[in-house]
Every structure is written in C-alpha cells, then in structure tokens.
Amino acid sequence: MKTIKNGIFNENPIFILMLGLCPTLAVTHNFESSYIMGLCVLIILLFTNITISLIKKLIPKNVQVPTYVLIIATFVTCLEMILSKYVPLLHDVLGIFLPLITVNCIVLGRAISVASKENLKTSFLDGLGIGLGWTFSLMLIGFFREILGNNSLTLMNAISPITKYRAIYQIFPSSNYFPIDFFIKPAGAFFTLGLVLALINYLKNKEEK
C-alpha cells in the first residue's frame, strides 16, 4: 500500500518527477482520451515491470537497456494491435502517442530503477502506483482542459462500441466568452499544466508550514 501511495503522491510521474510530459500535453484535450491513455500506460507498466522483474537475473548488465526497450516495444505493439482491432476509434484518437509509449521515460525509468533491482511484488506494486499516479494526473489536466476549452466532459464516446453507452455532458450554459478555445490548443496544455503544478506546490507548501 505504501508503494502504491508513493507512486501516486510522493513520486507522481507528472507533477513531481516531471516525466512523460509529451503525451501528457498532447492527449489531454479530451477527458476520455486522457484516462484511456493513462490506462494504456498502466497496463504497459504492469506487464513490463512483472516481466523484467522475472528475468532480471538472466539479462547481462551491458545489454539491459536494449532488452528492456525490446520488451516494452513488444507489449506496446500487442496493445496497439488489440486496440486497433477492438476499439479502432480510440486507436485513431490516441494516434501516434500509443506506439510512442515505447519511448516513454516513465516505463523505461521504472524498469531500470525498480524492476531490475526489486522483487516481483515490489515491482508490480510500483508499476501499479506509478501507473495510477500517471492516470490520475492525466485525468486532472484533461478534466480542466475539456471543461474550459470545450465546455463539455466526455466520459464515454470512443469506447461506446464496447460500453453501448455514450456520455458527453455540457457543463455550463454557453455564452459569448465561454468556452475558451485556448485551453484545447497546445499552448493551453502548457498553461493548464503550469496552473495545476502551481496549485499543488501551493498546497504542499501550506501543508509543510
């Protein structure tokens, strides 16, 4: 439990470690794509951490990184094929950022720093914690960006062929000033990330005092 909590709060990949910011800024224009991307990274983290933890003694030190990249790329390729077969709309929404999970700093970082040193249980829990931390962070940014930039909250749209249910809500009554397009654009992603980071640091400093 401590490892999971550590991954979500103390070692949050986005707000504390500041890793994997490229997909964070790119896919959070929509709440649904944010949590789906988060879940994809969570699945990849779990599988790679478990696999690497199991075979860590068989891999010589000098070929650690290429072997780990190979393992991560395999799981990402499998996930991409499964998504394109069963949820093609979602596969299109995530686009290039789905195969780019292979080079995500968090996945390789946790594989080298945790999975290659710790036992199976710790590696699994670390993957779960970091994955959940990443998912919650993306959801938080996606939540603010979609509401402010599109005046909506998409809970289920691309995954509706599976759930047989669509859920897109309008949050505020539309006016001349609202929604603000800026938040949907890439600059809005930086701005929102900065605001959320400032808020978290403010709350952290307040707690320390």
Partner: peptide
Amino acid sequence: MNKKFKSIAALTITSLICGILIYIVFKLTN
C-alpha cells in the same frame, strides 16, 4: 568472450520470444 556471448544470446532469445508473442497476437487479431 563468454560475457559477449552471453549478451548476444540474451538479446537474441529475448528478440525471438518477443517476435513469437507479437506473431501470436497478430494472428489472433487478424
């Protein structure tokens, strides 16, 4: 020499297993 051989063997075996896994998923999804 032994170390080099071990490294190449580890990479080759991992590639092979990964290739087989991708092939299985490809066959299942197509």
